[in-house]
Design a binder for these strands. Structure first.
Lengths: 170, 170
DNA sequence: CTTGGAATGTCAACAAGGCTGACATAAACT
DNA sequence: AGTTTATGTCAGCCTTGTTGACATTCCAAG
């Protein structure tokens, strides 16, 4: 539980990367990096009176056009009331279009409009620029490790969602 | 701007890891992983009628006992009013102690009480357990890459803060 | 010694975006 | 016909962020 630098070579393998101190550094790295991760889109969004919730909705509608509300709910992990508030403003503002389902008319399929895609592009460009710089600085091996650790950190349900999205876009 | 799999070997080096699709996967990995990252402490906190803001305050007070309010403000990146609301409840509940500074009596130095350290331990244990599992699954090389990319993703100011904390704890 | 500014606290008001609960509607399923 | 599903909506609550205004305390420079 305490730290320092104990157990300098247990079990033959070098497990120094699993000390509490290393884990704490990982935790703090996540905290500070996530701030950077959201900083650039946040700046664009506040000018438009939108928030991160709008960004997330726009991102995943762009990622999976025609997705249903229920599907989006599962991806985002919020309540329908929360999502609905966000979607309503996006639809009113003409960034998202909601079409009644053909086979199942209860479902609404969500699409970005021209304007919606334009905003999505601005937000993505900003967020990707930082990610690109970080990836380039770190190099391909580091990027592979980055992704491996993040995947292992997800809830298993989210791992599946993430993998499904990943494969649909490749 | 579009994707697919273009430019399959520009500039001699293999830059496939910098395609928009790769970056988008990185973005989504951050999103889903951060959910996992906060999930376990969040469960503990809701039972106690605390939120993530309380966790963050407790974490960094534990990390740097005796820190001033101003210093904490810089680390957390929120307004003093926001932090003050959180600190007040923690002090009222006997988890944090605020001592007037010796040399500069305007400053308040913050410490965790016995109870505060107990809660910090519970929260840290929960968060570290997931991080440890992820690190172990991914292996030391992946962990090194993970940290490299996260550091590169931070604002430069936060990089300095992160490094300072890291070195103070090693 | 006075005054300016820094560090802190506090009050008030507000907004975003989570949440729960209740209820309505339409469509699909059994 | 009755139940379940998908969605929307209203009302209300909480946390946590914001701004603005103002008080207090106290160091430090003039």
């Amino acid at each position: 539980m305490a730290d320092g630098r104990p157990n300098a070579g247990i079990s033959g393998e070098n497990l120094l990367f699993l000390t509490d101190e290393q884990l704490r550094q990982g935790i703090e790295a996540m905290f500070f990096a996530y701030r950077g991760f959201t900083a650039d889109p946040d700046r664009i969004l506040t000018d438009l009176a939108y928030g991160r919730a709008h960004h997330r909705a726009i991102h995943f509608i762009n990622r999976a056009p025609g997705t249903t509300v229920n599907n989006l709910l599962n991806i985002l992990g919020v309540t329908k009331q929360s999502l609905n508030r966000v979607l309503r403003t996006l639809i009113e503002d003409g960034l998202v279009e909601s079409r009644v389902g053909k086979s199942d008319k209860r479902e609404r399929h969500l699409f970005l409009t021209e304007d919606g895609r334009a905003l999505e592009g601005r937000l993505s460009d900003a967020q990707r620029a930082r990610m690109r710089a970080a990836f380039r600085d770190a190099g391909p091996d580091a990027v592979a490790g980055f992704r491996t650790v993040l995947e292992a950190m997800m809830d298993t349900e989210m791992q599946r969602t993430y993998t499904r999205l990943k494969e649909s876009g490749a």
